[in-house]
């Protein structure tokens, strides 16, 4: 990248020893699905909250032949996504893409792509708070014990409180899941709409929390169940209209404000998915005439 000064970085910025340490944590995480493995998080040239956990995981698994995609809230174009993508283009010289199908590694914040992932792909999540029990039990020693003993009554207390207060389970992001029937896990702040995609997913899913120094994993084809009650079963959000640009009905939509007179539209949060559909000829009620260009959000 021309904007970067001519310093030679080790491939992927991190030194090889650090990468080995992170890979060991990743292997352990894969061996114990949903279990939070501590690792010695390194300083990265970006602030916490910018996905330093995800960046370190990506750096540790990235090879020269990989093709990297980075999304933030479903979009490839946010400052955060662009920064991380150019970071790896500069420090590893890898190819990048915005196309889900092309990518071998997808680093994400807050979304799972709509396009079904395959066995040759790895999804890396940026995680702010890895501990699903944290808000109920602030003591780290105690949450560790609760996980060790699979003592998860507390998790349902949280859902109970939701229903008692709102009449339904009001948790819509970071909705807790049970991984492989053993560990209750925070899927990171993805909308619960995406939770079903974690279940039996052919791709490897890795989760990195930089500030909290934890890595966890959902190996391919692992059972992932969203917690619920028999009489208040888990349900994903429904949208009462299709994407205004591509007409997709079964996707997660973002609200886009069009003007200051209350004009707005609902469009795919996953910009690549929207682009691909429009390129294939699908159109929504507000689709511009002619072939779509690269970006989709007006």
């Amino acid at each position: 990248m021309s904007a970067m000064p001519t310093i030679t970085y080790n491939f992927g910025y991190l030194d090889e020893q650090t990468k080995r340490m992170i890979r060991r944590a990743i292997l352990k995480a894969i061996a114990i699905p949903g279990y939070q493995v501590p690792f010695a998080s390194r300083e990265m040239p970006m602030p916490y909250g910018w996905g330093t956990g995800g960046v370190q995981v990506t750096a540790a698994i990235l090879g020269p032949d990989d093709i990297l995609k980075v999304i933030d809230q479903g979009s490839d174009d946010t400052t955060n996504a662009v920064a991380i993508r150019s970071f790896f283009a500069a420090t590893a010289g890898v190819r990048t893409t915005t196309r889900t199908k092309e990518a071998t590694i997808i680093q994400t914040r807050h979304r799972v792509p709509e396009t079904k992932l395959g066995p040759e792909q790895i999804l890396v999540y940026q995680v702010p708070i890895p501990e699903p029990l944290r808000f109920l039990e602030p003591r780290e020693t105690e949450t560790r014990t609760l996980h060790a003993l699979a003592d998860y009554g507390l998790m349902h207390v949280k859902l109970y409180e939701d229903i008692a207060r709102h009449g339904h389970i009001a948790t819509t992001y970071a909705y807790p899941v049970m991984v492989a029937g053993r560990y209750v896990t925070d899927p990171s702040p993805i909308p619960k709409f995406d939770n079903p995609k974690l279940d039996d997913c052919p791709a490897l899913q890795l989760f990195g929390a930089g500030r909290e120094q934890r890595i966890y994993a959902i190996p391919p084809h692992t059972r992932v169940v969203s917690l619920d009650f028999e009489d208040h079963p888990f349900r994903v959000q429904r949208f009462d209209r299709p994407c205004a640009l591509c007409g997709a009905e079964d996707v997660y939509l973002d609200e886009v404000i069009l003007d200051d007179r209350g004009g707005r539209m609902f469009v795919c949060s996953d910009t690549d998915h929207c682009d691909q559909r429009r390129a294939a000829g699908h159109a929504g009620t507000m689709a511009p005439q002619g072939a779509p260009k690269g970006t989709s959000k007006p």
Binding site: G153, H156, V157, Y160, A164, R165, F229, E230
Partner: peptide, 26 residues
């Protein structure tokens, strides 16, 4: 648990031993 409702406080043990029906717990 001071930040949890009275019903949640009483229901916690039931949930801990596997009760999964909100109506029954309540």
């Amino acid at each position: 648990r001071m930040a949890v409702s009275a019903g949640g406080n009483v229901g916690e043990r039931l949930m801990a031993i596997g009760w999964r029906n909100y109506g029954a717990i309540r």
